[in-house]
């Protein structure tokens, strides 16, 4: 087993001070580990990987890994990534975003990146809350749960990220939790391999800001909640509807293949080139 951590250490920036800034029990570190293992498994070099991150706790993980890392503005990571990918399609561009980042302030960019099918791996670290700014409601905060800006319970319906991504046209949509690390490794690896816009939603607990206010005594309780409620998609589909409402399906939610924007663009350019000569 020792190779797992050693492997991760190989990809960390050792001139950055560890431990990282994230809270005890925060799942973001687990996602980072998963991401590193996926990159390693595919044999990608450090130089060809670009991590583009937004603002928030998720945005902070970019600085710790020894890839090309770009820590952008709140909600706009996908726009930077689009520019990078179109400018140099050879790069493997991974976009790390939080739920508030990707779906509240950046919701429009998210929809359009999925629609254009630009070749990115979008990794949304969904902790159902604005962690870094102190636990305000995000667009994925579940109905009736509490936050500093919903002291009497959230009255609005929340986004289902995978459904949204699928509807917007993302060809590969998957979800896992940080407890289901092997699944997470697998879906991230697949997402990195595939062409086009591939979305992985990682459910990751925020005890500090979300759990505390919503009857989770400890971080571990939140992991236990995942253990109980995250159900593989196949099993989930067999559940009666009333049961489904209480559970969260994980696994590959949808998978199809469409040529990515940069491939289509290159094809268009070669057509123009052909017409000229």
């Amino acid at each position: 087993m020792a190779e797992v951590t050693q492997l991760i250490h190989h990809y960390l920036r050792h001139n950055k001070r560890f431990p990282h800034v994230l809270c005890p029990g925060c799942g973001h570190g687990i996602v980072l580990g998963s991401l590193v293992r996926s990159v390693h498994q595919l044999g990608l070099t450090k130089d060809e990987v670009v991590i583009v991150a937004g603002i928030g706790c998720s945005g902070r993980i970019a600085v710790y890994v020894d890839f090309n890392t770009v820590h952008t503005t709140h909600g706009r990571a996908l726009t930077f990534a689009t520019g990078i990918k179109m400018a140099n399609p050879k790069l493997k561009v991974i976009v790390v975003m939080g739920d508030g980042d990707a779906l509240s302030i950046g919701g429009n960019h998210f929809l359009h990146a999925a629609r254009r099918n630009i070749g990115l791996t979008a990794l949304i670290l969904n902790n159902n809350i604005y962690g870094m700014t102190g636990g305000q409601t995000s667009s994925t905060t579940p109905e009736s749960s509490y936050s500093t800006t919903s002291p009497f319970g959230q009255q609005e319906q929340s986004f289902d990220i995978v459904k949204l991504a699928k509807a917007a046209g993302a060809p590969y949509v998957a979800r896992s939790t940080v407890l289901h690390v092997k699944l997470l490794d697998r879906v991230i690896t697949t997402a990195l391999e595939r062409p086009g816009f591939n979305l992985v939603e990682a459910l990751t607990p925020c005890h500090t800001q979300y759990g505390r206010k919503n009857k989770f005594k400890t971080t571990v309780d939140m992991y236990k909640w995942y253990k109980k409620n995250a159900i593989p998609i196949d099993a989930y589909q067999k559940l009666p509807e009333a049961e489904q409402a209480l559970r969260t399906p994980i696994g590959i939610i949808s998978e199809e293949t469409r040529p990515s924007l940069e491939e289509r663009y290159a094809m268009m350019k070669s057509r123009l080139e052909g017409a000229k000569s």
Binding site: V52, V70, T72, T73, R76, L78, T79, F80, A81, T82, G83, I84, K85, M86, A87, N88, L91, N108, H109, L111, H112, Y265, M268, K269, L272, K276
Partner: peptide, 28 residues
């Protein structure tokens, strides 16, 4: 599209346009 390496992309808004050209600038 007619020049080597040339890329034009219409973004969803001006915020995204700026993001994209910064990304492209970082990519050289």
């Amino acid at each position: 599209p007619r020049i080597p390496e040339g890329v034009f992309i219409q973004m969803e808004d001006e915020i995204a346009s700026m993001g994209a050209i910064i990304g492209a600038s970082l990519a050289g």
